[in-house]
Design a protein around this nucleic acid. Sequence first.
RNA 1: UGGGGAUUGGUGUAACGGUAGCACGACUGACUCUGACUCAGUUAGUCUAGGUUCAAAUCCUAGAUCCCCAGCCA
Length: 671
Amino acid sequence: MTNTNTGGEASERTLNFIEQIVENDNAQRVWGLNERGVPKVHTRFPPEPNGYLHVGHAKSICLNFGLALRYQGKFNMRFDDTNPSKEEQEYVDSIIRDVKWITSAFDDAGAGFSAGSYDTGPAAGGLFYASNYFEQMYLFAEELIRKGKAYVCDLTGDEVSARRGKPGVPATSPHRDRPIEESLALFRDMRMGKFPNGARTLRAKIDLASPNFNLRDPVMYRIVHESHHNTGDAWCIYPMYDWAHGIEDSLEGITHSICTLEFEDHRPLYDWFIDAINEGRTDDGSGPWGRRIQHPQQIEFAKFRPTYTILSKRNLLKMVSERIVSGWDDPRMPTISGLRRRGYTPRAIRACMEDVGITKVESSIDIGRMENALRDHLNRVAPRAMGVLRPLKVVITNWPQGNVDDLDFVINPEDPAQPKRKTRFAREIYIERDDFMEAAEKGFFRLAVGQEVRLRWAYFITATGVVKDASGTITEVHATYDPATRGGDAPAGPDGQPLRKVKGTIHWVSADHATDAEVRLFDRLFVAEEPGTRTGNWADDLHPRSLEVARAKLEQSLSTAKVGDTFQFERLGYFRVDEDSVSGTLVLNRAVTLKDSRPAGESGKSKGAGAAGRMYSIAEAAHELKLKQEKLAAMLPGAGISDFASRTPAQLTLAEVRGLKDWIKKNPPTK
RNA sequence: UGGGGAUUGGUGUAACGGUAGCACGACUGACUCUGACUCAGUUAGUCUAGGUUCAAAUCCUAGAUCCCCAGCCA
């Protein structure tokens, strides 16, 4: 079996546990056949429109949409909009946009099966709103009251809390034996708006002593006098998630209701509600309550949890409202709209999700995996261009004044089918400041005085001297070029082999033909792998310089680039034209750098993210060693790490953690 | 202290009583007009302790650690 990291195209791999469940169900025809004559598979993505979608949601979309596609089923986009006080039309609009964008990664999904976006392709189930089922839900609720399975409770929120009980101590409710007719009348009065917010609730009559608190007579309806983005003022009672969700799935014919781990405790409730509705119903509808409704299967999986990121909508909202970022679509945000603006592609996001897989293990995903997936995709599709982020002027002193050369530039070496295009070269050019050293150090094979370098697709040049300002800063480099190297090839000898080699190739931009641009360089929003673990407040781990703005010089052809265009600037990374661009002033975002295998330090970046440089906080180390933090801290001196208390930051190296592991084996802690 | 989950190299993930494999990362090297890409190689793992078995990551027992649950949020 092979795994794929090549853009998420379907390939052979072992089935994940959800696919196994689906295939089992299919083999046993649990859900019957669909109109295509294949076993029915119907999934959905059910966000609440109370914020923008983030990468975590992308995983769920890919899972659910991918399942529908793989098994020739259907996928519903559904708003779980049961709480008018938190939901807004702006969020509805953004979610629709984002889901379409993510699902577009499934276009041309192979096997002659084209996907299209969620609402147009063969997997399209449609766009739905839970709020459109309010009337049906209400009818089901009355049915449960009449079956003696639900009752109106007069307790306030605080009173319910106070009476919730504890593990081993049952909850209490003074109204659970209220006569059916009385509950029915009160429930109708609730709907009529006869009571203020919070005065009464409808509760399911399940088990006040259940060890699972979700079953201690959960609230089904609460009174909320507020306008709803979809139903307006039609309702003043709104269903709770637990009551509503299973009904939504059932009504839409969902077969596999996939959600995240924290809802495992809710599954018995999900099942109870559907079973309660079905009690007294029959397959042919002949009973007193009519036809049975579908009972979807809830399946839970672990969330996508990237390092150096926070994902809860509440905290993302806080970052937006406190202006820590410029908005929900700030390119540093883990929101789908932020990733899109930064330059991520849906295919890269999908590939990352495929790479990471579906399990019930709450693992955290190295944010580098997302970056790798992006590089992998963009490397194959992004046109190359040249841009200089920190320009340093080079004067080619032996280049004829006023002369301009048109040179061939390869658009994408990964795609030889693409034609070449012309790039202008002249006497004055810009190169990257980092690509020049007055005196080359060992291992530095870019431009230096007396050292020859290749200008990509242009000429070999050798620096001859520098011009400095009063402070000693180099303002200009003088160099000579070799006319025999036009196009960037060294002249060949009689045997056809190049007569000389240059180790370095650098990028450049013609000064007279350059276009100015603002280039935004992003770093992680947080400096801690898990923001907030150190102090309990993620704000303490914010990266103080997660945005740097460069005044760049780009090759002339970029001046006509459009918003959304993405390029690889050779040797630098991938860049996307930002929405902030106005005519004449380009703004680009660096989506991700290229990988850099230069020695650490030389590239100006720290190379510590990998395993070798991995640092552990005391909490992480304690987790790794399966010890309590205090216990670990106490044993450090004995294990030969005596200076830990004085370290800043208080971290252990990977080697030390490994050493501790061995030491603990030999010296087991006392219980 | 009640209930529900989880635990395989640095990371992610396979193996469903029978060779612990794959991917990412890291490290070497080759190639290279991007210190990119590509290619080759190296590295490193079954939470612990018992038990069952010819054979255990897998089954049993006990324990450890982590996550979730007492909203009229979803």
